[in-house]
Simulated assay, not measured.
Amino acid sequence: MTIQPAKLRDPAVRAFVNAVNSRDREGFLSLLAPDATMADDGSDRDLADWIDQEIFSTHGHLEVDNESNGGRSLIARYRNDTWGEMRTRWSFTVEDDGRISRFETGQA
């Protein structure tokens, strides 16, 4: 059962999913803290390179199936033009100012 992005509990995570799905790179970047970091399958990656290769140049799209941890952990079907669709997990660290300082993803 897919959870509509508008129904996601955490405002920063909701905005993250909406930015990915609408291919809004500027909006996406505005959600991140200046020193934000990320990891994919347990390995830290260069944030700018990763989002270009995995999201924005390859038409990334998230369909959320489950949320936990107050909306800061997701299980989602993620697809892009490179890898097709896969079941993924996402976790977010959101700072007091509402910006995301770290996100981690990988296969679920």
Rank of each mutant, 00 (worst) to 15 (best):
I55W: 07
D24L: 04
V64Q: 09
T2E: 13
E85K: 04
A15Y: 09
F16C: 11
K7R: 12
H59R: 13
E85M: 02
W83T: 10
R102S: 01
V20N: 08
K7C: 06
E95F: 00
P5N: 03
F103A: 12
A19L: 04
F16P: 11
R77F: 00
E104P: 03
R102E: 06
P5K: 05
L29D: 03
D35S: 15
D24V: 01
R79V: 00
F16S: 09
A108G: 07
L8G: 03
A108M: 13
R99S: 14
D97I: 06
G60S: 05
M1S: 13
W90Y: 12
D24A: 12
P34F: 04
T105H: 09
I100W: 10
D97K: 07
G98I: 05
D52R: 15
S57E: 10
M86D: 06
P11T: 00
D44G: 15
N21R: 14
G98W: 09
E26P: 03
W90R: 05
L62I: 13
R99A: 12
T37S: 15
D49K: 08
R99C: 10
S22C: 02
N18L: 14
V13Q: 02
T2S: 14
F28A: 11
T93A: 09
R25C: 01
A48I: 13
D41G: 14
S91G: 12
N80L: 01
D46L: 09
A12V: 05
S30M: 12
Q4S: 15
E67Y: 00
D40N: 13
N69T: 06
S22A: 09
A76P: 00
H59N: 13
G27N: 07
F92L: 04
S43Y: 07
V13H: 01
I100A: 01
V13W: 00
W90F: 15
A6N: 05
V17D: 07
V13E: 02
V64N: 06
H61P: 09
G71S: 01
T37K: 13
P11V: 00
N21Y: 10
A48K: 15
I100N: 01
A48N: 12
R23H: 12
A19N: 11
D65F: 04
N66D: 10
L32C: 06
I51H: 08
D10H: 14
D97Q: 08
T105N: 14
D40F: 15
T37P: 00
A48S: 07
G106A: 09
V17K: 04
R25S: 01
